[in-house]
Amino acid sequence: MKKKYFSTFQLIVLTLFSALIVAAKIALRLPIQLPGHSGLFWMAIMIVATRVVPKKGAASFVGIVSGIMATFMGLGDFGSLNTLISYSAIGIGVDLALLLLGNPENLVVATLVGIIGHFAKFLVKWAFGAISGAPLGFVALGLARSIISYLVFGALGGLLGGLTLLALKKAGFFAYLAEKK
C-alpha cells in the first residue's frame, strides 16, 4: 500500500494550526493602525507549524486550509477569492522560503521566512488591487508605508515563531512528539 505523504496525525495537527490562525485573526485585535500587523501572530504560528510537521508542503497546507476557513467565515476586506488566495500565498511563500533557507530554528532564517511569507500576502493584495484598477494610494508613499509595515510585522512574527520553536525544543516537546508519531 502506498504510504501517505502526511499521516492522519499530521493532517489533524496542521488543520488545528489552520484553525488557530483563523481564530487568532478574529480574536486578537491589536490596537495598532498599521497594515499587516496580524503578521505578528500569523507568521509565528506558521513557523511553529512547519517545525511540528517538518515536511515540504506543510505550510502550504496550513495556508490553503486556513484560507478556506476564513473564506467561509467571511473574513477579509476584498472578497472571498482574495481572502483564499492571500491566505494560501502565505503558506506557499513560507514553503518556498524554507526550501531556500532550511531550518527555521535558526532565528535569522525564521525572521526571513516570516518576511517572505508575509510579503507574499502583500503581493496578492497589491496585485488584486492593481488588476481591479483600485485607485493609487491617497497618501504619498502610502504603498511604501504598507510594504514596510508588512515586512516589519512579518519579521517580528517570524522571530517570535523562531523563539517559540527554541522554547519548545528546550522543553522537550519535539522529542515527545517524535514518540507520539
Binding site: 522560503a97 531556500l100 533557507l101 532550511g102 535558526n106 535569522v108 532564517v109 526571513l112 518576511i115 517572505i116 510579503f119 503581493l123 497589491w126 492593481a130 493609487l136 504603498l143 511604501a144 510594504i147 515586512l151
Partner: peptide, 30 residues
C-alpha cells in the same frame, strides 16, 4: 547558509523594487 540568507535578502529587495516600480508606472498611466 550565509549565501542562502544573502540570496533571500536580495530576493526581498528585488520584489519590493518591482512592486514600487510597477506602481510608479501605473501612476504615470493613470
Amino acid at each position: 547558509q550565509k549565501k542562502r540568507i544573502i540570496l533571500a535578502v536580495g530576493l526581498i529587495i528585488v520584489l519590493v523594487a518591482v512592486v514600487l516600480g510597477l506602481e510608479s508606472l501605473r501612476a504615470k498611466i493613470i
